[in-house]
């Protein structure tokens, strides 16, 4: 009996139209239900951080929280800057010059998140292992970064990310 009753439903335009309307309605309802998981208005409003870099001593690193993640601000020594600048681009898995990575050579600003799977690399504290190239070392899966935060060895595919930032005065950077 049911098979016979199925027949008219396939042919009729009106049934196609009503089922399409229901499907369209369901699709429209889905969007708010998904979009609610995106950052809320108050979260988006908090997405910039300001930081005074003059407080960071030469040879020291400081971690700043930006969007819930650490940003590394390192006041590099002369030796570290020279070391970073001297590297041949052909030696790098992800070639990029040191000058491209920081507008002020002595202040390096990096997103402190390993590009492999998101751990925070070691190297901020004086006692931390800094890896074979004297930059940072990610303990999760053994990625080594140099003094410019570039990947040199290990599973991470790219250099440590430079967050969007600018100097809003001589010593204050605005991240985000």
């Amino acid at each position: 009996m049911s098979d016979i009753n199925d027949q008219p439903t396939r042919r009729d335009f009106i049934h196609v139209a009503s089922v399409s309307a229901a499907a369209l309605g369901a699709a429209c309802v889905a969007w708010p239900l998904i979009d609610q998981m995106n950052p809320a208005a108050d979260t988006l409003a908090l997405s910039t951080t300001e930081f005074d870099v003059s407080g960071v001593q030469e040879g020291m690193s400081v971690s700043v929280v930006w969007r819930g993640k650490p940003v590394f601000v390192r006041h590099r020594t002369k030796a570290e800057i020279e070391e970073a600048a001297a590297v041949e681009l052909s030696d790098l898995p992800d070639p990029q010059t040191d000058a491209d990575r920081t507008p002020r050579p002595e202040i390096l600003v990096l997103l402190g998140v390993c590009t492999h799977l998101g751990c925070v690399p070691l190297g901020q504290k004086a006692t931390d292992p800094k890896g074979e190239w004297g930059g940072w070392f990610c303990p999760c899966h053994g990625s080594h970064y140099d003094t410019s935060g570039r990947i040199r060895k290990g599973p991470a595919p790219t250099n440590l990310v430079i967050p969007p930032y600018k100097y809003i005065s001589d010593d204050v950077i605005k991240i985000g």
């Binding site: 008219p8 439903t9 009106i14 229901a22």
Partner: peptide, 20 residues
């Protein structure tokens, strides 16, 4: 507006299916 259109469509759909 959308729901009114959908209501109308299902009204005629229902009428058609129940006509036999």
């Amino acid at each position: 507006i959308f729901l009114l259109v959908m209501t109308g469509l299902f009204y005629y759909s229902k009428k058609k299916i129940w006509s036999d």
